[in-house]
Design a protein around this nucleic acid. Structure first.
Lengths: 158, 158
DNA sequence: AGAAACCGTACCAAGGTGGTACTGTTTGCG
DNA sequence: CGCAAACAGTACCACCTTGGTACGGTTTCT
């Protein structure tokens, strides 16, 4: 299930804040103060971003976090995936502890294949928005290509 | 926040089932049996679909639900909106009981405008998938049109 | 009259989310 | 050396949503 929780939103804000001052080491306290958000929330999300390799961390006095990567390479999709973990619109493919599919009607399900198409489209949209664009505050008028939608039965998956 | 809960998924299944037998009055019991889902769940979701005007209901013995509309007009977006209610990726515009914005940094927020772009793209994707396509089980290769992005400098990933 | 089927509402357990607290550990600096 | 700043890890809690159930009421067909 796709969700963009408040925590993920905090993470985006923090990442953008760091990306706007590339290479600079900034304490979590400063970010929390800027956005008027509780410090423990910001530190929590920054820990996750660090674990995911999005930002660097520096401990000790004068430490903090920094974004050292290329903002044109890091995408919104990567950040969301780091913060929320893997996601899908529906849980068609989930399996129980024994490895059996939770959904008993998978093969005949009328919505599964369609959902995967939508799924891919959304992930694609997230992948095409770079951190650089986020940092600039640009607003893309992203749309779905109608011609691609009508094509029936493109690929057989799974 | 966008979420497609299991209940919404049930609603999609039920709607598709009805749309495949247009005009036919079908008891909730039959749909539940077909998908191996608990009857109370199906009835609950069908009530919501009826309240939203997606399907018709007929009471009494021999009653049930039917889809009488044009499957080329009803969209996935309408069904989701009926089942989940209005949604947005982030809660930037939410206000408290007194009408004041919950987000204190709205005007300067670096992610708000971008999120609205993504928001629109996803809603657009949902609006372009019709119930007829769902019923056919077609799988669209929906993609975002790169040229519509505000910035031409889009990283070559995926 | 009785059964079939929808309607409305209420209820509950489980899990997720937002948020807090506390105890390390590392590092810079006087 | 000793202190303070700042990250790391973990545990905890209140609240809400979600999935699912229960039950009594109403309509309609036979």
């Amino acid at each position: 299930m796709l969700k963009i929780s408040r925590l993920t939103d905090y993470g985006l804000l923090a990442t953008v804040y760091l990306a706007r001052k590339p290479g600079e080491v900034i304490a979590a306290r400063e970010i929390a103060a800027f956005y008027h958000l509780p410090l423990p929330m910001i530190t929590k999300v920054l820990k996750t971003l660090h674990a995911g390799g999005i930002v660097h961390s520096y401990r000790g006095s004068g430490g903090g976090y920094s974004f050292d990567g290329d903002p044109d390479v890091v995408t919104l999709g990567q950040i969301i995936e780091t913060l929320e973990g893997p996601w899908d619109l529906v849980e068609c493919e989930s399996v129980d502890d024994a490895g059996h599919a939770l959904c008993s009607i998978r093969v005949a399900c009328p919505s599964r294949r369609m959902m995967f198409g939508i799924n891919r489209a959304i992930k694609g949209a997230f992948e095409q928005v770079t951190l650089a664009e986020l940092a600039r505050g640009a607003m893309p008028s992203a749309v779905i290509d109608k011609h691609e939608l009508s094509s029936p039965r493109v690929a057989e998956r799974v």
